[in-house]
Amino acid sequence: MNVIVKTIEQTTEEILTLAATHFKVPRAGLQASDDFYKKLGIDSLQALELLTRLENHFGVELPDYEVQGVSDFSTLASRIQARL
């Protein structure tokens, strides 16, 4: 069976696209290094929603303690990549 593994760049791109779609902001305005709390103007409840959407999208589990303190898309992508 061939296993297709996403690259970190692909994972990051999918996160940015998902965040832009869900929070209704232009995709072009989001960068991997952005602080998503500030850039998207979200609180921790919305961050939890984003976490759930990412888990559903990638089919992974992201324990809260692994993303605690994470505020940029790039680090979020590496946390997800580690579970793909």
């Binding site: 609180d43 921790s44 409840l45 961050a47 939890l48 809260d64 303690y65 605690q68």
Partner: peptide
Amino acid sequence: TDAMPYLP
């Protein structure tokens, strides 16, 4: 002051 301080 967080909207949901009981979250992690």
